[in-house]
Design a protein around this nucleic acid. Structure first.
Lengths: 219, 219
DNA sequence: GAATGTTTTAAACATCCGTTTATTCCACGC
DNA sequence: GCGTGGAATAAACGGATGTTTAAAACATTC
């Protein structure tokens, strides 16, 4: 039974704590004590705290990357030379994101981690993700380009990131928002509910009219 | 000259460092040495690091809150019993956000701080902001309700937060995104450029068609 | 100009951190 | 059975953190 499930226990505990408090605010002592594992185990198995952080991400992003590539392969076969419609691309992305962590029903954790990767300094993490998973984003980005030929290059870039912000911000801050929503509207939303609500907003955002070329934004 | 500009020097230095690295990653020693102030000055003038963090926010949010209330007062006079159009509300919000930090040309810092307030744990900060500035948000939220009577209550709540996510995520991660954009598109964007690009996306997102009532979101 | 109250300073304090070391444990192959 | 090597453990290390203390410097008032 024992063998290397120490590694798994560390990862399981670390991802939850990281998602709850961030990286700097989560000490190795908190992780190892909650995981009922010796303090030195982290440095023994992973080498350093930084490497542990990267390993936590790899456990989500490796399967995600593989599945998403695969899903895009199928779409490209299906659509031959036609451009894949934007809605289909977004739908596929959403489905893959939902599938990956579903097996450990930890979508919330996954989203929190993505949000942290963006917002917490941690230069090493950004470099790691860019280096290991940059090509998935590039491929998706290229397909979106073909799906929205009317958008100027730069405009599409920014809108993709706007929408990324919408989704990550919402799903990663979900708990806080859900508390407010529960209290005010007595309507409990699931993550899948939220994604259903997000879809039309994201699509409309991507297809919004181009901004005025006005030189100034306000009075 | 000296007197209590120690307090100002601490605040000026702290807000920049917090915005760059986050709260936990910024030590009082870094702040005080860069501000050329004694280490104990923070605890003497503010009481604790937490209180310093809150003071940094208050210096932005107090003027913002006051000006925004004032701007909404004027709009309510101007529109009498009619509903204020959504675009006008968003425009007013954007203008006020731009005005407040303009005097110290630190809009970027302001946005980074807002993003941190959302994403970094710091429960004391969330409570502080909620307690001191919750009513501004409530008022704005009520006006948006009158401007979008066709939206179900809960749907509007979520969309407002979607759009909040879009804006805060984008402007708070601005530097990283700008690096990519500069490299790929050789087009340097200013914060005002970005806000110009954000506007149609936000408006379109708020006015997107309602989601299907489909029970499931994907395959 | 002495007294008073506020601000600044240097030093120490008590914790907490990530990492390393040295030892012990335990399973497996010979 | 014994020895070998990978894994677990307890303890310590060096350094950084927020906070407190007690003395010095300064400004203000009478």
């Amino acid at each position: 039974m024992a063998q290397t499930d120490t590694v798994t226990r560390i990862l399981d505990t670390a991802e939850v704590l990281f998602a709850e408090r961030g990286f700097a605010e989560t000490s190795l002592r908190t992780i190892t004590s909650k995981a009922k594992v010796n303090l030195a185990a982290v440095n023994y198995h992973f080498g350093s705290k930084k490497a542990l952080i990267q390993a936590v991400f790899a456990r989500y992003l490796d399967p995600f990357s593989e599945r998403f590539h695969q899903a895009l392969d199928e779409l490209e076969v299906q659509y031959r030379d036609e451009a894949i419609p934007l809605e289909v691309l977004l739908e596929t992305l959403a489905r893959t994101v939902l599938e990956v962590p579903a097996e450990r029903n930890s979508l919330k954790v996954f989203m929190r981690l993505l949000g942290l990767a963006y917002t917490q300094a941690q230069g090493h993490l950004r470099r790691y993700i860019q280096e290991h998973y940059g090509n998935v984003f590039s491929r998706f980005s290229d397909l979106v380009r073909r799906a929205t030929p009317e958008l100027p290059e730069a405009e599409r870039f920014w809108r993709l990131h706007f929408m990324l912000g919408t989704v990550i911000f919402t799903l990663s801050g979900l708990d806080a928002l859900r508390d407010i929503a529960d209290k005010d509207y007595h309507e409990h939303v699931s993550v899948r509910d939220l994604i259903r609500r997000l879809r039309p907003v994201v699509v409309a955002g991507m297809q919004a009219p181009l901004p005025d070329d006005a030189l100034k934004v306000a009075g």
